[in-house]
Design a protein around this nucleic acid. Structure first.
Lengths: 340, 340
DNA sequence: ATGAAAGCGCTAACAG
DNA sequence: CTGTTAGCGCTTTCAT
């Protein structure tokens, strides 16, 4: 491996000069710059980021700690949003999947400080996620998609309440009345906020939330399927269902198919989380699309601003989801008219 | 930030002793170990991986350089396969998305050597990908999913030929005869091998490949849609289509829907790449499932073996895909029988 | 069994 | 404008 010393020797200058050339220090004789650059090229020299980081105490690496890239397009999009901004700014990414496991999460947080990363973008697994190792080490942190009770860090969120509200309100104005809700753990902000939006819409319409139509599941496919089966087995079947994430939606759709119900005549469906194949289903699936890529971009921007020296109070950026109206939630009136 | 010096001072020992404790060196007095450990805990000391890497020239980080985590579940699964093994073994991952851009790819390769990573797992963007920076620096490399002409590195591949062969053969035995193929760029091994499997199946059945039924597209949704439209506009329409990746399949399905054709009576469909929602489509989609997660796992294992000292010739691991037979390729005979 | 000291590759005062 | 030198935090001979 060739080091800065080799370059210095070959160019007949000191390592300090080579270092200056490397860092575009303008007060170096242009002729020296030229020769040094040439030697660097000839020797195929690459400055060691490790040594540089140790010396400058500034690591051009971020840790991106999320639950799981595999769970649908959401986190994959977030990752790309973060990476694209990071790449532009000369940073690279540690990707850390926690699977919502607090132990893994803590391990990765420790790793981030051990690696002395420049910043962390984190989707906390829950309200008890411990940021102190990060805060103690003064590593800037941005919380993405979920936040933590005490506003100790910048955060970028999707407006889950209004997204859910819009979705359910859309069903209500379409004539659906017995609208079920399959939501995720209410301990997560995403779960509780989407449920909140659901109840707000129901109550805002002058109706009352019927507990028998609400199922708290686990954000996973199996959970969605079981919840939907329960809802369909019940005496008072729903005439529509709002499912609060895409995995549970897959499960719920499966259950609906198994029960030989047709959508939307038998039951209307709206999903939180849009998917690239929503339009391939028959009927096409109405869904709340989340700005996942932008969520990554905004998180990265907040981090960059902290790295740029900003040290004000914790900021919170909220992004709006958008309802994609498609066939699975067609208005009842129209359906009735067609039938009549 | 607390360093090894602080710990040494507080414990009344030398930094060498602290280092030994840190590295579980057995020849330290157990009583000293205890006190040092206690001081470490009290001070919340975390050894700097950066300093350690600089000193030992051994970085417990790998670079995982792929085309794009977002393009469907495939790469996301690969990433998790790699990460799970890496995590177990105490390594963490740089995630690098190249978007098949040779410049970005080269940049990330340079980054990998600059960061002095312990190893690289790479999905080369094409046959011209330059591994020399890695090889010169003696960074072990594993090629995942695609390989490069000269076998200079270990590689883990999916048997694309046999996967494609099986898929097309399945259509043939189902009674389909005018089977079209929408494939990706033949410059990629995935593209050419899947096309090869297609032709092998056709010819193995005693038929001849009809060039008018073959479309070389770009592995993207739009490309798949356009190719399918062309095929349907043609005089001699296909009675089935084999699409060689999931994005093009989405496009092709869109085109089929637009043309108001029914599957499989109007046209049979088999896709390379299975997707979690294949069973939600009506009819359900027959697809070749790739062992993406295992591909990541195997790649990581090969890397680990190199890091463990293995220095034999380049190895090649081939994983078998599996055909998931579903509704979109139902046998023609049965369809005819039903109609009759 | 423990400590002193050198040095990994780089940057940044400080001199000159 | 350039060179000398002192570390960044850690590991690892080499002594003791």
């Amino acid at each position: 491996m060739t080091t800065i010393v080799d370059v210095a020797r070959a160019a007949g200058v000191s390592t300090a000069t080579v270092s200056r050339v490397l860092n575009n220090n303008p007060q170096v004789d242009p002729r020296l710059v030229a020769t040094v650059l040439e030697v660097i090229r000839d020797l195929g020299y690459r400055p060691s980021r490790v040594a540089r980081t140790l010396r400058t105490r500034h690591n051009r690496v971020w840790a991106l700690i999320i639950s799981d890239v595999r769970t649908g397009p959401f986190f994959a999009d977030v990752v790309r949003g973060v990476e694209d901004v990071a790449y532009e700014a000369g940073y690279s990414l540690f990707l850390c999947n926690t699977d919502e496991d607090p132990v893994k999460e803590a391990t990765y947080i420790e790793l981030a400080v051990a690696e002395n990363v420049g910043g962390v973008i984190l989707t906390p697994s829950g309200p008890r996620t411990d940021l102190t190792p990060l805060l103690n080490s003064e590593v800037p942190v941005v919380l993405a998609d979920r936040t933590i009770p005490d506003q100790v860090a910048d955060s970028v969120l999707v407006d889950n309440v209004s997204g859910a509200y819009e979705a359910v309100n859309h069903l209500l104005t379409g004539g659906y009345r017995r609208i079920a809700c399959i939501t995720g753990p209410l301990t997560t902000t995403t779960g509780s906020h989407r449920y909140l939006g659901y109840s707000k819409a129901i109550e805002g319409y002058g109706l009352v939330v019927d507990g028998s139509l609400v199922r708290v599941a686990d954000f996973r496919e199996r959970g969605g399927r079981l919840a939907m089966q329960e809802l369909l087995d019940n005496a008072g079947r729903p005439d529509a269902v709002f499912v609060t994430n895409h995995l549970m939606t897959i499960g719920a759709l499966q259950a609906i198919v198994d029960a030989k119900l047709t959508i939307p005549t038998g039951i209307g469906v709206v999903s939180f989380d849009d998917m690239p194949w929503s339009t391939l289903l028959r009927p096409t699936l109405t869904a709340v699309a989340q700005p996942a890529y932008d969520l990554g971009v905004e998180s990265a921007r907040l981090l960059l601003s902290r790295l740029g020296g900003y040290s004000g109070a914790a900021r919170m950026v909220t992004l709006s989801p958008s309802l994609q109206v498609r066939g699975s939630s067609a208005p009842k009136r129209r359906l009735a008219a067609r039938r009549g």
